[in-house]
Simulated scan of single mutants.
Amino acid sequence: MEKYLANVKKYVPNPNEDAVESLVSHLRLALANHDSSIVAATDPDELAGIKKGYCSVNLDLTSEEADAAIDKVCKIMKGDKAKCRVTFYYLLAQESDTMHRVAG
């Protein structure tokens, strides 16, 4: 949990720790494998999967809202070669104003 919180803090000075913990719990299977713990932001199939899965199901975003949030997060994290999935998903919730759906 601490390493994920530290990664989120690279982008958000005072992150919602409950949200980070919730994401770590939700993503535990993906986080068990290094390759799946990283978002390949240049892979259209990966981004489509995030849009269809996390953005649509978990954040309840429309297609347009999801595209806008994914675009913003990709720009925010553009300097980070290995984009941590927890951080990427946290920023998606933040940028789409749906943090309440993550932190519950």
Rank of each mutant, 00 (worst) to 15 (best):
G79P: 01
G53F: 07
A68I: 04
V24Q: 02
D71S: 09
L91F: 06
S56W: 07
K51P: 03
A69V: 06
A93M: 09
V8K: 10
L61P: 11
V102F: 07
V12M: 08
A93F: 08
E65L: 10
A30T: 03
I50R: 00
D45P: 02
Y89H: 15
H34F: 02
K9M: 14
G49D: 09
E46N: 10
M99A: 10
R101Q: 12
Y4A: 05
F88S: 02
G104Q: 15
L92K: 01
S22K: 10
V102N: 08
Y89I: 01
D71A: 11
V8F: 08
G49M: 05
S56M: 10
D80L: 05
A69R: 02
Q94Y: 09
L91V: 10
P13Y: 09
T62V: 12
D35M: 03
D18W: 06
V20S: 04
K10F: 04
Q94P: 00
E65P: 13
S56D: 14
H26R: 15
H26C: 05
M77A: 11
R101N: 12
I38C: 02
V86C: 03
C74R: 10
H100G: 14
E17K: 15
D97M: 07
A66Q: 08
L23Y: 02
V12D: 05
Y90E: 00
Q94I: 05
N14I: 11
M99N: 09
E95A: 04
A103E: 14
T98C: 13
K78M: 07
T62N: 13
L27H: 03
E2N: 11
A41H: 02
S56R: 13
A41T: 11
L92A: 03
L61F: 11
C74H: 00
E21M: 06
K78L: 01
D97N: 14
Y11D: 01
P13A: 15
E21P: 00
K10T: 04
A68H: 09
E64F: 04
D18L: 12
A66E: 08
L61D: 08
A19F: 04
C74E: 05
K72F: 00
C55E: 05
E17R: 14
C55V: 09
D71L: 00
A48M: 12
S22A: 15
L61C: 13
D35N: 11
I50H: 01
